[in-house]
Amino acid sequence: MKRFQSWAARLTAAAIVLVAATGGIATAQAETVKFGAAPWPGVTVKTTVAQKILEAIGYDTQVTNASWTIALQAVGRGDMDADLGIWMPTQKSTVEPMVKSGKIDLLVKNVPDAQYDVVVPDYVWNAGVHSIADLNQHADKFEHRIYGIEAGNDGNQIMIDAIKNNTYDLGDWDLRPSSTAAMLAEAGRKIDKKQWIVFLGWKPHWMNIKYDLKYLQDPKQIWGGGSAVYTAINPMFKKDNPNVARFLKQMVVPSKIQSGWIYDYGYKEQPADQVAERWIKNNMDRVAEWLDGVTTADGSGPALAALKKSMGS
């Protein structure tokens, strides 16, 4: 019994030293922060920015690229910790049941001003096409076509349903699915010639920098109203890793910034690592907001100071 009491006393003393040194009881921290990510340019660079910051403050990171549904399911199972690319409301039918069942938490709108809708070039807008309801008045100029992206995409389906139901008098229109690259190539050709085109557009994306586009009004809200991109996180990871969770919750990116990342990475084809590191170095004021109250992985000091030291600034 005396031996046990002596051992317990030493353990208590060690705990007191630990509290004194760290300012509180140490919390469990993940050795590796695991991200699931759809292979979309915006998600790729945004996740790389998060990686660079986390690694600079002492964490290891890992990214698994997969379709957005598979990546999100992995977060729900705990195989992955977080996913920075959840589009709402277009992915609502999959995401909402996982939130209600407690498999994931939607931590923050990391791109609060995102948009996914139908777009036209500025010269078409200036000619009077301001709403999806205006399209059919100029059907011949559009050749009764709406250009979409990959078959099965939620945006395609919204417009297919509108055509099927004759919403906005689109009953004799056609949705032309293709790859995103092919759709944007067709848009680029028509824009260069000032020809009329209507297609699926979204921000953040480099298309908003390359072209002067206008998002059409949707008075019947077939697109579900305003869009946002969320960070999904595994609830247990969030509970066990409050330091990482705080950083991810504070990592909010206006669409204009992410469109710039996508332009450099997806259009100019610069490496994601290069785009991310250059942006971090040149935007420490914004990064400081993301790291407010965040410490290094070992709790030894402020995360921002460690990041600046790592970046040589």
Rank of each mutant, 00 (worst) to 15 (best):
P121C: 02
K239S: 00
W206N: 00
A182R: 15
W196P: 03
D117A: 08
H130C: 03
L106V: 01
N65W: 09
N208K: 06
E269R: 06
K109S: 02
K268T: 05
R189C: 12
L304W: 11
P97R: 09
R246N: 11
K2E: 13
M80N: 15
L304R: 05
E277D: 08
A8E: 14
A26S: 08
K141D: 07
T231M: 08
S6V: 14
P112I: 05
P121N: 10
E186V: 11
D122E: 03
V17F: 11
T69G: 07
F35R: 05
E96K: 10
S67A: 12
H130L: 00
A21S: 12
I160N: 13
P242R: 00
A13F: 13
N126M: 00
A30C: 12
V252W: 06
K239L: 07
P242G: 12
G188D: 10
K92M: 10
Y263D: 01
V49I: 02
Q137G: 11
G128M: 02
A162N: 04
L170Q: 11
D140T: 02
L184C: 04
K103E: 04
L213V: 07
A162F: 09
Q258S: 15
A13K: 14
A185C: 12
G225H: 12
A30R: 13
G24S: 10
K194E: 06
D273C: 03
W173F: 14
A151W: 15
V118A: 00
S179G: 15
V43M: 07
R246D: 08
A14N: 14
S227W: 04
A187I: 08
S255V: 11
G188M: 07
N282G: 13
I16P: 04
A14K: 13
Y265R: 07
K2N: 13
Y168L: 14
D161V: 08
L248S: 03
P112N: 03
P302A: 12
V129D: 07
E143S: 15
A306F: 09
D134N: 02
I146F: 01
P41W: 06
W279E: 01
L175C: 13
A15V: 06
G23F: 11
Q62Y: 13
W223P: 00
N156R: 10
L107R: 10
V99F: 01
A127F: 11
Q274E: 07
Q115L: 01
A56N: 04
L213M: 08
T64E: 15
Y123V: 05
G102W: 09
A82T: 08
K103Q: 09
V99I: 13
V75Y: 09
A182G: 10
I160M: 13
P112W: 04
V45Q: 07
A71Q: 01
N156A: 06
Q137S: 05
P112A: 04
L248A: 03
N234P: 00
G301Q: 13
I197H: 01
D81E: 04
I86F: 08
L248E: 06
G42R: 07
V294N: 05
P177S: 09
M159Y: 06
A15G: 10
Y147L: 09
Q157N: 15
G42C: 11
I70D: 12
K256F: 08
